[in-house]
Write a protein that binds this DNA or RNA. Structure first.
Length: 491
RNA sequence: CGGGGUGUAGCGUAGCCUGGUAUCGCGCCACAUUUGGGAUGUGGAGGUCGUAGGUUCGAAUCCUGCCACCCCGACCA
C-alpha cells in the first residue's frame, strides 16, 4: 500500500487523521460524526477497558447495565442537567417504518408515534437515579458503587475521530452515598484511579484539578478532572469525576432513613472516561512514522519478523523464530510471529512502526548462524544485535524501559510547556508562541473567565489540586487572586 | 450554524476550461523470480464518473437543484 506521510510540524490535524487511518485504528462511517473502530484500534480500547475495569473492581465497584433510551420526562427533572445536554440530544419519536402506498418508499409510520419521546442517552445519571430511588430505603443500602460500560450519543456540531464523535464508547460510574464526605472521598478516589491509569498505563502525565464553575458538568457541585497536554501544545480533558451533591437525589426523590431514623437525601458521584483516551494516547506519543504505544497498553508488545530466501533457510529461521515466540509467550508477553510470505521484511518493518508495536525482533539466516537476533525499539528507533540467549531476561526489561521512556518524554514535554506568567502580555505570548499550559492568576469570577476566553481562546483547564497557595493579581482585571489556575487552548 | 474544500475502481488521482463512453499509481487475482528497510516482471479482474433533472445526435465534462463527507471556527467529554 502506498502510504501518505504527513509531518506533525506541517499540519497537525491532517497528521492526526492520517495516522488514525494508517495505523488501522478507525475510519469514518457513512453516518456523519460516527466512526468505525477497526480491530486494531478496538484491541487497544479493550486493553484500556481491562486495566480500568480491574481498578474499578479493586476499589469496590461492580458493573451493571442501564437502558440506552431515557424517557424525556426523566431527562428534564434536573434543571441544570437538561440545560447542559438539551442542545445535543438525539430523540426517538417513532418505533416503526412502513412502505408508503403511493411512492413505495420506506417511510416512518406516522401511526407509530411514541406517547413519550425517548432520549438516546448522552449520559445516564437520570435513568440511574430514577432506578436508585427504588433500591435505596435505608442507610444499610448504601453505598451503591456501580459502573457501566456503554455507548452514548451527543449530537456535537463538529466531530473528530476519537476526540469527539457523535456516538462514543465510555464507562460511567454512578455511586450513591449516605454522606457528603463519603461522596467527595469517592469522587477524589476515582480521580486518583484515572490519574494512575493515565500515567502508568497510557504513559501520559496528567494534572489533577477541579473545574471552574463555567466548565463544570451540568448538574454537578464540583467537577474534578485530569488534564493532559498534547504534542501540539493543546490541552485535552482526559477524564472527569463529579461530586453531584444531592442534586439528582432531590430531582428523583431518592431518600434513605438514617441510623437516627431521619429521612435524608442521598449523595451522588459520577465519573467517566471515554474512547477519547485513544485520541490522548495518539497525540501524546506518536511521531511522523506513526503510532507509538506504551508497552503496557500495546495489543502486540513484540513482533517477530523472520527473514529468509530459500526453503532451507526458511526451515532454519522459522524454527528459531518459533522457539523465541514460545519463549516470550511463556513470559506473558504479547508476541506475534509474522510469517506472512507475500510481504517483504521492509514492508513489515514499516507497517509495525505505523502501528506502534514497541519491540520488533528480526531474525534471518545470519542470526541463526550467530545465535543472535536484531532487536529494534519503536520509541527511539534504536536497533541492536542481541544474543538469543539474552532474550528471555532482556526483553521484559526492555519493554519496561520503553514504558518509562515514553512517559518521561511526555513528562519532559509538559514540563517545558507549563509557563508561569503575571501579565496579560506574557499570558498571550505564552499561548501564541510557547503553547501549552499557562499558570496565571484569575480573580475567580465567571465574567473574567468568559472574557479571557473571548480574547485568547484559552479556557481554565483546572485549578490544580496540588497548587501552591499564593496571592496575586488577576492577569485581566488586576483584582485580588488567591491562587494560580491553569489555562490552555484545549480540544 | 458561518467560512473553505471534496465527491471518478478498495485507496490516491488525471481528464472537465475546449462535450465523442475514462488516465495513471497503489492495492487485488494468477504465474515466475524475489525477501536484512515499504520487491520485480508478465498476464488478468474491477467503473451506471455522489444524486436528480435539463441542454445536446451524444454529458465525467455545460446548466439547475439536491445530497453526502472532510477541514477551519462557534458548542462540547
Amino acid at each position: 500500500m502506498e502510504i501518505k506521510k504527513i509531518k506533525r510540524s506541517e499540519d497537525y490535524s491532517a497528521w492526526y487523521n492520517n495516522l488514525v487511518k494508517n495505523a488501522d485504528l478507525a475510519e469514518h462511517s457513512d453516518v456523519k460524526g460516527c466512526m468505525i473502530i477497526k480491530p486494531y484500534g478496538y484491541a487497544i480500547w479493550e486493553k484500556m477497558q481491562a486495566e480500568l475495569d480491574r481498578r474499578f473492581k479493586e476499589t469496590g465497584h461492580s458493573n451493571a447495565y442501564f437502558p440506552l433510551f431515557i424517557p424525556k420526562s426523566f431527562f428534564t427533572k434536573e434543571a441544570s442537567h437538561v440545560d447542559g445536554f438539551a442542545k445535543e440530544c438525539a430523540v426517538v419519536t417513532h418505533y416503526r417504518l412502513k412502505v408508503d402506498p403511493e411512492t413505495k418508499e420506506i417511510i416512518v409510520d406516522p401511526d407509530a408515534k411514541l406517547e413519550e419521546e425517548l432520549i438516546v442517552r448522552p449520559t445516564s445519571e437520570t435513568i440511574i437515579w430514577n432506578t436508585y430511588r427504588n433500591w435505596i430505603q435505608s442507610y444499610r443500602d448504601l453505598p451503591i458503587l456501580l459502573n457501566q460500560w456503554a455507548n452514548v450519543v451527543r449530537w456535537e456540531m463538529r466531530t473528530r475521530l476519537f476526540l469527539r464523535t457523535t456516538e462514543f464508547l465510555w464507562q460511567e460510574g454512578h455511586t450513591a452515598h449516605a454522606t457528603a464526605e463519603e461522596a467527595v472521598e469517592e469522587t477524589r478516589k476515582m480521580l486518583d484511579v484515572y490519574a494512575d491509569f493515565a500515567e502508568n498505563i497510557l504513559a501520559v502525565p496528567v494534572v489533577k484539578g477541579v473545574k471552574s464553575a463555567n466548565e463544570r458538568f451540568a448538574g454537578a457541585i464540583d467537577t474534578y478532572c485530569i488534564e493532559g497536554l498534547m504534542q501540539d501544545g493543546k490541552a485535552l480533558q482526559m477524564g472527569t469525576s463529579h461530586f453531584l451533591g444531592q442534586n439528582f437525589a432531590k430531582a428523583f426523590d431518592v431518600k434513605y432513613v438514617s441510623k437516627e431514623n431521619k429521612s435524608e437525601y442521598v449523595w451522588a458521584t459520577s465519573w467517566g472516561v471515554s474512547t477519547r483516551l485513544m485520541g490522548a494516547l495518539i497525540m501524546s506519543h506518536s511521531d511522523d512514522e506513526g503510532l507509538v504505544l506504551p508497552p503496557r497498553l500495546a495489543p502486540i508488545q513484540v513482533v517477530i519478523v523472520p527473514i529468509f530466501r530459500k526453503a532451507e533457510e526458511k526451515t532454519l529461521v522459522m524454527e528459531k523464530a518459533d522457539a523465541y515466540f514460545q519463549l516470550l509467550k511463556k513470559q506473558g508477553i504479547s508476541v506475534k510471529l509474522d510469517d506472512r510470505e507475500n510481504l517483504t521484511p521492509g514492508y513489515k518493518f514499516a507497517d509495525y512502526e505505523l502501528k506502534g508495536v514497541p519491540v520488533r525482533i528480526a531474525i534471518g539466516p545470519r542470526d541463526v548462524q550467530n545465535e543472535t537476533v536484531e532487536v529494534a525499539r519503536r520509541d527511539t528507533k534504536e536497533k541492536q544485535v542481541m544474543s538469543a540467549a539474552d532474550l528471555e531476561h532482556k526483553i521484559p526489561h526492555l519493554l519496561e524501559q520503553i514504558q518509562q521512556n515514553i512517559y518521561q518524554k511526555a513528562l519532559d514535554y509538559r514540563s517545558e510547556h507549563i509557563h508561569t506568567v503575571d501579565t496579560w502580555d506574557e499570558f498571550m505570548d505564552a499561548l501564541e508562541n510557547k503553547t501549552g499550559f499557562v499558570s496565571a492568576h484569575w480573580d475567580g469570577t465567571s465574567e473574567t473567565e468568559e472574557k479571557i476566553k473571548e480574547l485568547s481562546k484559552a479556557t481554565i483547564r483546572c485549578i490544580p489540586l496540588e497548587n501552591a497557595q499564593e496571592f496575586g493579581k488577576c492577569i485581566l482585571t488586576g483584582n485580588e487572586s488567591k491562587e494560580r489556575v491553569l489555562f490552555a487552548r484545549a480540544y
